[in-house]
Design a protein around this nucleic acid. Structure first.
Lengths: 111, 111
DNA sequence: CTTCAAGTACGACTTGCATCGTACCTGAAG
DNA sequence: CTTCAGGTACGATGCAAGTCGTACTTGAAG
């Protein structure tokens, strides 16, 4: 399982309640919307999301997203990588990422 | 607008954040799952869901679902009807009800 | 009318959660 | 080594939300 440094639940163990609770927060949903609309699914830095909250709170939010099984976090010690678990989410909850992408400012269209 | 006694938001005004917040609660999600899997979309009574909570709390939960735009509540004075807003939800968030239905004990298959 | 069940309104309580302050850890650059 | 920025751990705080108790309203049945 390469690239799964900090682990979340397996694909089959994804829980809809935890997913909805994770997506209920505006900041976490904005992160997920951004990830969902980026088709490249490249690893991103934590501070590439421009969240208007302290870094401790950001750590908290990314942890919630990871524990819900929505993202992977790769720990580099003094830097962290974020990657969307697109395949697992699509497999377990098909259409969910489309719903999130439709809420982006640009709409459903890929940029 | 027949059958919309207690009003919620219009179809176009449905908010994904409010919907996720509504579905984050176990009891509300169980109600929505039950409604999503019932293809007849008939009006149901409030106490037909067997929720293990007091009636005051049930009133609260149904209000949250209505204000999120997920159900209609019809007030008969000493009785209340619940109806899923399937068309509006499908129009605004296509696939959401399928996700909920897939979480039911019976799976995706229509009974 | 009275009685009764269903539902609501209001308030209180309690839990959960988002937020941040302080302190500490990590790796890179000097 | 020291310095510094990114990130985490722990605790405290404040607010939102789930829950229920009491009292009230509604409509039907007697």
């Amino acid at each position: 399982m390469a690239g799964r440094n900090l682990v979340g639940p397996e694909a089959d163990a994804l829980n809809l309640g935890a997913v909805f609770r994770a997506l209920a927060d505006e900041h976490r949903r904005s992160v997920m919307t951004e990830l969902a609309t980026d088709r490249s699914d490249s690893e991103r830095g934590c501070n590439s999301f421009d969240l208007p909250i302290s870094k401790q709170t950001q750590t908290h939010h990314f942890r919630v997203l990871r524990e819900a099984g929505l993202i992977d976090e790769v720990d580099y010690g003094n830097r962290k990588g974020i990657r969307l678990r697109r395949a697992d989410i699509e497999k377990r909850f098909p259409g969910l990422l489309t719903l999130l992408g439709a809420e982006s400012p640009g709409g459903t269209a890929p940029r």
